[in-house]
Amino acid sequence: MAQAVSTSPAVDTEPRPVEHHRQERSWPRLVMLILGAVVFLFPFYYMLISSVQAKSDTSLKGVFPTGGFTLSNYTAIDKRVDLVRSLINSGIFTGGVILCTVVFGVLAGYALARLHFRGGGTLFATMLLVQVVPFQLLIIPLYVMIVRSYGLSDSYLGMILPFAINSTAVFIFRQFFLQLPEDLFAAARIDGAGELRILWSIALPLVRPAVLTAVLLTFIGPWNEFLWPFLITKDTSLQPLAVSLANYISNVAARAANPYGAALAGACVLAAPAVALFVVFQKHFRASDIGSGVKG
């Protein structure tokens, strides 16, 4: 992890291609890259196409259906799993985590990058350490604390709490604040601006791309998280979509008329927001933003 500290990310620069092969057109490379794209995308294509088929056709012909398109699988899954309710739950869970991460993460990132205070070094070391301890390991004590001691099962608060501040996002904030020139801060301090004001009106507008990157990165966690909300929600009206869909797959699917069709329709609903978000904001999810640390 130690290397992760050394460099700061370049804001919004497309990774500069290494130009050593520039003249020759390399067919093997192109074939490899396209083959890779097919391997990554095919399951998504198959998921979508099978979710709009009345009957699942698993033969090779079923990969390119010509007719029989229907939305019946979507109504079928909606009958078993309240899709709107589940999506709202996923949204509240994810939104809560993003809100806490942005508010408290920006403050912590700013402090770690720009302020000298007691315990800063320890906090930074802990932040790095958190990223190497498997979260899943903590499920037993967290379950004991949150469900048994605080009685927060079946609540949004209990769902959000363990994820509230994403450490990777704090790390990204710190890296971006660290990049800003010190003169900027010195000048503002001489002018008598308080730290909160400097952060809000000077530093934050300059690191806006970092905020978007951190939001995207933070989004993936709670939106896709299964184990934790699964453990603490028994009440189906509070379950995020990942949990209610998983329950459908493991309990109900086998007995349904078109078992895979409905599950795949649910899978499309769960996948769509994440995919749309990352396609629209792909500029902010780049090697230079994410892998800030590894060039070292």
Partner: peptide, 26 residues
């Protein structure tokens, strides 16, 4: 396009992609 297609599985919920793998490998 290639870059996005490579990280689409990463950003998608395990539960969703497990559903299609179950179907593919049944």
């Amino acid at each position: 396009f290639l870059r996005i297609s490579y990280y689409v599985p990463y950003i998608t919920a395990s539960v969703a992609v497990v559903a299609v793998w179950l179907f593919l490998f049944s």
